[in-house]
């Protein structure tokens, strides 16, 4: 079965090389998400250390979803009350968004590159459930 617009699509070697490129992309998404998150959390802790001389953050948060978790601190920062926990909260939020982004990238891959409707639907389902859970309150 040949596909004229994508003559190489049925070729397993091409399919495999695309899959490998996807592996590399997924790897970098995961890596950058974790690295950025760690950098922000470390910076927040270090800032706190400069302020107080201790590597300790004494705060808890009330129940909120991921977006309130970040926007509450951003709002304070805009009012000129930026504090270390802004960086820490952003770090935690980016960590949580990392697997989410990974799934999003997988969906784009299955949809646009490998044109695999089955797996596009599977990933879409996962994305929808995750999106819903991120808005839980």
């Amino acid at each position: 079965m040949t596909n004229l617009s994508h003559p190489s699509f049925a070729d397993p070697a091409v399919e495999q090389s695309r899959q490998r490129q996807m592996d590399v992309l997924v790897g970098y998404i995961l890596l950058s998400g974790v690295v950025l998150s760690l950098a922000l959390i470390s910076a927040g802790l270090f800032w706190k250390f400069l302020q107080t001389g201790r590597l300790r953050l004494d705060y808890q948060v009330a129940g909120m979803n991921l977006f309130e978790f970040v926007t509450s601190e951003i709002r304070l920062a805009v009012q000129g009350q930026m504090r270390p926990r802004l960086l820490v909260n952003m770090g935690i939020a980016i960590l949580m968004l990392t697997p989410f982004l990974r799934v999003l990238a997988s969906m784009v891959y299955f949809f646009a590159v490998s044109k695999n409707w089955k797996y596009t639907l599977f990933t879409l389902f996962v994305l929808m459930v995750l999106t819903r859970s991120l808005f839980l309150r």
């Binding site: 995961l30 998150s37 760690l38 959390i41 470390s42 927040g44 802790l45 590597l55 300790r56 953050l57 004494d58 705060y59 808890q60 948060v61 009330a62 129940g63 909120m64 979803n65 991921l66 978790f69 926990r85 820490v88 909260n89 770090g91 935690i92 960590l95 949580m96 990392t98 697997p99 989410f100 990974r102 799934v103 996962v126 459930v129 995750l130 859970s133 991120l134 839980l136 309150r137």
Partner: peptide
């Protein structure tokens, strides 16, 4: 990773994620 994200959302919504505790542990 994805499974843990689903669980984490529930715990964050319940106010059980304490960033002060989370920061050193994540690092």
């Amino acid at each position: 990773g994805v499974t843990a994200l689903a669980g984490t959302s529930v715990y964050l919504a319940a106010g059980l994620i304490s960033p002060g505790l989370a920061a050193p542990i994540i690092l």
